[in-house]
Each structure stands twice: as C-alpha cells, then as structure tokens.
C-alpha cells in the first residue's frame, strides 16, 4: 500500500469519526444554546447535566436488561431518549428553586446582568451534582454496553484494494438519533406557538412581559428543555465513551466552544458549531498524541473566543 493511501485512509477515518461524534456534540451544544445562547444564562453545570444523562441511560439500560423488554441494540438509544423527561423535571426544579433568582428580568440592570452571580451559583450546583454523583454512583468508569460499540461497517475499498474506512455502529446510530432530535427541537422552537413564545421570552424578557407571556414560566421550560436535550446527548455519548462523575468538565468546554463558534443566539448555528468541534477533535489526533485531543479543543476554544467571538456562522449581532 502506498504512503498516500495510508494518509488518505487515516484522514478519512478521522473525518468520519469527527462527523459522527460532531453530530452528538451538536446536540449537546443545542441544549446549551437554549440556556446560554438565547437566555444568556451562564450555566456552568451543563456538563453535569450531560453526566446525569449518561448515568440515567446506564441505569435505565440495566433496568431494561433485568426486564428483558428491549434488546441491547435498540435499548441504549431508547434509554438515552428517556433521559429527556427525567432531566426535564430536574432542570425545571433547579430553575424554580435556584436559577431563577439570578436570571431573567431580575438580573437586568444588576452587575454584569447577573452573569457573575450565575457563574458562581452554577459552579456551586456543578460541584454538588458532580460530587454527589460520586457518592451515589461511585468513581468506577462505566459505559452503556451495546454490541454495536464493537461492530463497524466497512466502507471501501475506495481506491483499488486499499483505503478502508470503518464506521463504528454505536456512533453512527447515536449521530442519527442526534440529528433527528436536533431537527425535532429546531422545528419545535421555530414552528410551535409554545416554542416561539419560549424564544421570545428568552430573547427579550422585558418585551415578552408586555406581550402577555409568563416569562418566568417560559424561562423555566426553556431551561428544562436545554437540560433535557444535553442529557439525551449524554446518553448517546455513553454508548461509546467511558464516563465517571467528573466527566462533565471535559464536555462543558466543548459545549461552550460549539455555541460560541456557531454564533451566540443561533440555535442551528450551535449544532454546526458542535459538529465543527467534533471534526477538530478527531482531526487533531492525526497530528497530536491522543491524550492531548482535549487540550486541542481548549486551544481551539481560546482561539474562537479571541478571534471570532461572534462565531464562524453567526452575524455580528452586537457591537462592542
């Protein structure tokens, strides 16, 4: 096999992995974009929501296994989707009890529009949830078991007898579920009356009040949806990535990088942002040792916020 074929094969391999993982990242970014991009709530605990989604899927799968209802093929994806209602309730209550005190109309006009308080409050929540999960779930790394994780489709040979690309089936199905969920969410937000009123309330709370929208409730629902969406993405990640209670911090940067890259305030942009981050992460493995792939994301995040604070796809919405 020629040198070129080897290079082509590893590039294609990284590209396909990046696209698949990127779709899942896109979905988790979508969740954050509702909370941070549109409502402008700085949520530090978003990574922990993702982690809770992972554990939910894990335990739901264990329960299915015991009941023998769903097979190991469909089960993990159903479990991931079931994380949505559970974490919706969690996000709803969290907003009701804590987050609403430092966000929304109340935060307008306070120091930095309440961002300072939000950062610190959600840092506290993130510490409690992550360490509380350590108590509840233990520190042993887990993974949602499915035979799909170890099976792959073979594409190719694309060039003569060479250039085979392996597509991991767990990732492939996860990314398909992500795309479907993302499309569903975008349609819901842009078409349904509830979705539109949520967007309006989140975007400009003061104006929405005068349009007769119950802004507090709208914020709660939007926050809960953002939590649920990220948790579903967590359940999907869990099918191919071993996790423990402190896993959230690795993803929180990925999510912020994706949302900023996609342009703050743009829901579909956030998905594309997440997709780009996935591609960068996987392509970086071509030139960097694998332990540094997360470091590559952090560097990319820094470059994005410094040089493209309005995102690659976003328009310059505000003048600084």
């Amino acid at each position: 096999m020629s040198e070129l074929a080897i290079v082509a094969e590893s590039v294609l391999q990284a590209l396909s992995a990046g696209l698949l993982i990127g779709c899942i990242y896109g979905l988790m970014c979508l969740g954050l974009s509702l909370i941070f991009g549109i409502m402008r709530v700085i949520n530090f605990a978003q990574g922990e929501f993702l982690m809770l989604g992972m554990y939910f899927a894990f335990y739901a799968m264990a329960a299915f296994g015991a009941l023998g209802i769903l097979g190991p093929l469909v089960g993990p994806f159903v479990a991931a989707l079931l994380a949505a209602p559970a974490l919706f309730v969690f996000g709803y209550l969290l907003h009701l009890l804590l987050v609403r005190r430092v966000t929304g109309v109340r935060a307008v006009g306070t120091e930095g529009e309440g961002h300072y308080a939000q950062l610190i409050l959600t840092l506290g929540i993130s510490l409690i949830v992550a360490n509380g999960s350590l108590v509840a779930f233990g520190s042993f790394p887990q993974v949602v078991k499915t035979p799909l994780s170890s099976t792959a489709w073979e594409l190719g040979p694309l060039y003569g007898d060479f250039v085979l690309v392996f597509v991991n089936q767990a990732r492939a199905w996860s990314s398909l579920v992500s795309i479907a969920a993302a499309i569903g969410l975008v349609l819901f937000m842009s078409r349904s009356a509830l979705g539109k009123s949520l967007l309006a309330a989140a975007d400009n709370p003061e104006a929405a009040i005068y349009m007769g929208i119950d802004v507090d409730r709208a914020h709660r629902i939007a926050f809960a949806i953002g939590t649920a969406v990220t948790a579903v993405a967590g359940g999907l990640v869990a099918t191919y990535y071993p996790f423990q209670p402190y896993v959230g911090i690795e993803f929180v940067i990925i999510m912020y990088a994706g949302v900023v890259l996609g342009g703050i305030g743009s829901v579909s942009g956030a998905f594309l942002g997440g997709l780009s981050i996935g591609l960068v992460q996987q392509l970086s493995t071509l030139v960097l040792p694998i332990q540094l792939q997360n470091a590559a994301i952090f560097v990319m995040f820094l470059l994005v916020v410094m040089f493209r604070p309005h995102g690659l796809f976003g328009r310059s919405a505000e003048r600084t």
Binding site: L123, G124, L127, V129, A130, N131, G132, L134, V135, S139
Partner: peptide, 10 residues
C-alpha cells in the same frame, strides 16, 4: 467520597 466538593458547592 465526594463530601468535600459537596460542602464547597453548598
């Protein structure tokens, strides 16, 4: 095991 983190968080 995570009691320290929980304390700081609370």
């Amino acid at each position: 095991p995570g009691i320290q983190g929980v304390t700081f968080g609370i």
